[in-house]
Design a protein around this nucleic acid. Structure first.
Lengths: 315, 315
DNA sequence: GTCAACGCCGTGTCCTGGACAAAATGCGAG
DNA sequence: CTCGCATTTTGTCCAGGACACGGCGTTGAC
C-alpha cells in the first residue's frame, strides 16, 4: 500500500491553490526561486504536492499575514516556523476578570459545545446589554478565537461555527435595538472592501452604532469602491464606514480609502475601523480613523456636535 | 477626455477573471482559439479589456451555465446572445399571484425603499409562516434579483442590501423556529465550498430544514473540504449538505463532492443542492441531489423512513 | 432494430521560462 | 531623527506548447 499512501497525500496544484490561497503562478515562482515547495510529478509531468509541504505553505501564508516576507522564512524548518508563530506581539495586558469569561467560552468552542456556547452568550447579552456584550465579551473573544486558530489550537470549522453563532446573536439583537431606540442621524453606511471577509467586526460596529441611536445601513461584505460611492449617494448617508481586517493588503486599503474620499462629497464623512487601519502609517487626508470599537460612541458624539447638525430631528 | 474615457473602461485580466469567473488561462486560450475576446494592450504589453467585451464575456459565462458551449456562441453578436439569454428554459410557469408580489418587492429594491421592503417581507413571514415565505417569496425573489442584476437593471449595492435584509429576517426566524419546534434527527451540517459566496441559498435551506424539525448546524460559507470532513465527524452529524450556486465551476463541484463522499463514512449522507447541481450531468456515486428547495422536506422525510432510524428519539 | 463500444473533437488546465511593475527595505543626506 | 532615493524582493503577466477529460456521433455486434 506504499503507492496508495503516496497517492493519498499527493495534492494537485489547483487544490494547493485553494487550500493555501497562493496562486499557481506564485507556487511555481517560489519553486523556481527558492527551491520550495519541491513537489513530485505525476506520470504526465503535473506537480503533486506532498501533504507536509502544503502544511508548511499554509503556515508561511499565515506568517505573511503577520508581516513576514516569504524570502526570509521559506528556508526555515517547519518547527522553526511554528515557534515563530508562537511569539505574540504581547501588546495588551487584558484584565483578569473578563479574561476568565473569555477563556471559559473559548473552551466551549474547542469542545464543540455549540448549544451551551449559544446559551452562555445569549445570557450575557441579556444581563449586560448589547453594548457591554460587544465591547467586553464578543470582541475579545473574537480575538482570542483568531489567535487560537492561528496557533493551531482551533480547527477552521470551529472558527466558522463560532462566527456563525455570534453572527446570529448580533443580527437578532441589532434588530431589537433598532426597533427599540428612535433612529436619528447620522445615517451610516457600513461595508468592507472586496476580498475582505471578516464579518464579525462589521456586525460589532453596527451593533454599537445602533445602540447609539444612529441609523445603520449595512451592505454586508465585499462591496467594490465604485458601488460604495453609488450607494452612499443613492441612500443619502452622512457617514461611510469601512471595516478593515489586519490581513487586508495595505496598499489596497490606502487606495480604496483615497478613492472613496476623493469621489464622495465633503459633506459625507469616511470612517475606517478595524485592525487593518492600525497598521497604516498614514491614512488618506480627510479619513477618520476609529481605531477601536470603544471609540465608536465618541465618533458619533463628535459628529453630532459639529455645528449645523440637528442631533435629534430628521434631516 | 477621450484618453481618460478609454482608461476608465480598460480592465486588466485579473479584474476580468474576478468579474466573469473565467480563469486567466481560459481567457488567453479563447483569444488564441476563437479570436475573442480581443483586448487592447497597455504600454507594457498587458491585456486591457474594453468594458463591452467584458459584458459579453459575462453573458457567455451565463449562457454556458445554461448548457451552451463556448465555441458555438462566442462568435455571435452581443444582441443575439441577449436574445438567447432571454429565452428561458420555460420549465416553470410561475403563478400570476405570487409573481405579482415578487414584482412589487423587486420594485422596492430598485427604489431603495429599504424600510418598506423589510416591513413587507416581515409581514409576509408572519402571515404565511417561514416555510411558505421561503418557497413562494424569498426564493423566487432572490432569483428575480439575480436576473435583474444580470440584465443591468440593478446595481451591485442594491443586490447587496437586499441580501442583507433577507439574511437578517431569515436568521431571526430560523432562531424562532429552532426554539419552537422540538429538534430531532437528522442532524444536518450545512456549508458551501470555498469561493462560493451565495449566502441566501444556504440560509433558505437551513430555514426549511429547521421547519421540518431537523437539527441544523450551519458553518456559514466557504468551508474547505478537509474541514467539512473534520466537522462532520466531530459533531457526529447524520447529513452533510453543500449548497452550490450555478456560477460555481463544474469541475470543482465534482471534485469536492467526490472527495467528501469518499472520506466520510457511509452512514453519513451527502446532500448537494442549489442551482449548481442541476447543471451537472452526473454527480458522484452516493451523493443525494436535492434539486430544488421544495424537495428538502421530502428528502428529510425519506431519511427518517429509512430502517433503523428512530424518527423521534435521540441517537 | 437496439444497444454498447469506440474514437474524434472541443475544451480547459497545466507546463516552461522569460520579463517587468510595484512594493518593501535599507541606505545616506539633511 | 526623518525624509527621499536606490536596490532588492516579490508577484503577476506573457507566449506557445501539450495533453487529459468529457460529450457526441458513428460504427459494429448481437
Amino acid at each position: 500500500m506504499r503507492a496508495s499512501d503516496e497517492a493519498d497525500t499527493a495534492i494537485p496544484i489547483s487544490a494547493v491553490e485553494r487550500e493555501t490561497g497562493l496562486s499557481k503562478d506564485t507556487l511555481r515562482m517560489w519553486e523556481r526561486r527558492y527551491g520550495f515547495p519541491a513537489p513530485g510529478r505525476d506520470p504526465f509531468g503535473d506537480r503533486l504536492y506532498p501533504r507536509p509541504q502544503v502544511d508548511k505553505l499554509r503556515l508561511i501564508r499565515r506568517l505573511m499575514d503577520q508581516g513576514f516576507r516569504p524570502g526570509r522564512i521559506i528556508g526555515e524548518s517547519y518547527q522553526t516556523l511554528v515557534a515563530l508563530a508562537g511569539t505574540r506581539p504581547a501588546q495588551q495586558a487584558p484584565e483578569a476578570q473578563e479574561q476568565d469569561a473569555v477563556r471559559e467560552l473559548l473552551a466551549l468552542v474547542k469542545a464543540h459545545r455549540v448549544a451551551e456556547l449559544q446559551a452562555a452568550l445569549q445570557q450575557c447579552i441579556q444581563d449586560q446589554g448589547l453594548r457591554r456584550f460587544v465591547l467586553d465579551l464578543a470582541s475579545p473573544l473574537a480575538h482570542a478565537v483568531g489567535e487560537a486558530w492561528f496557533h493551531g489550537e482551533l480547527a477552521v470549522f470551529e472558527e466558522h461555527l463560532f462566527t456563525e453563532v455570534v453572527q446570529n446573536l448580533l443580527r437578532k439583537w441589532i434588530g431589537e435595538a433598532r426597533n427599540a431606540s428612535g433612529q436619528r442621524p447620522p445615517r451610516i453606511l457600513l461595508t468592507t472592501f472586496p476580498n475582505e471577509l471578516h464579518a464579525l467586526g462589521l456586525l460589532m460596529a453596527e451593533a454599537l452604532m445602533t445602540m447609539d441611536g444612529a441609523e445603520c445601513l449595512s451592505f454586508g461584505l465585499q462591496l467594490p469602491v465604485a458601488d460604495i460611492i453609488q450607494a452612499a449617494l443613492a441612500h443619502r448617508v452622512d457617514v461611510v464606514t469601512v471595516a478593515l481586517s489586519p490581513a487586508y493588503p495595505r496598499t489596497a486599503t490606502n487606495e480604496g480609502l483615497s478613492e472613496l474620499r476623493g469621489a464622495l462629497p465633503a459633506a459625507i464623512e469616511v470612517w475606517a475601523g478595524g485592525g487593518g487601519v492600525m497598521r497604516l502609517k498614514r491614512v488618506p487626508e480627510g479619513v477618520v480613523v476609529v481605531s477601536a470599537l470603544a471609540d465608536v460612541s465618541a465618533a458619533i458624539r463628535h459628529w453630532r456636535q459639529q455645528p449645523g447638525r440637528a442631533g435629534a430631528g430628521p434631516a
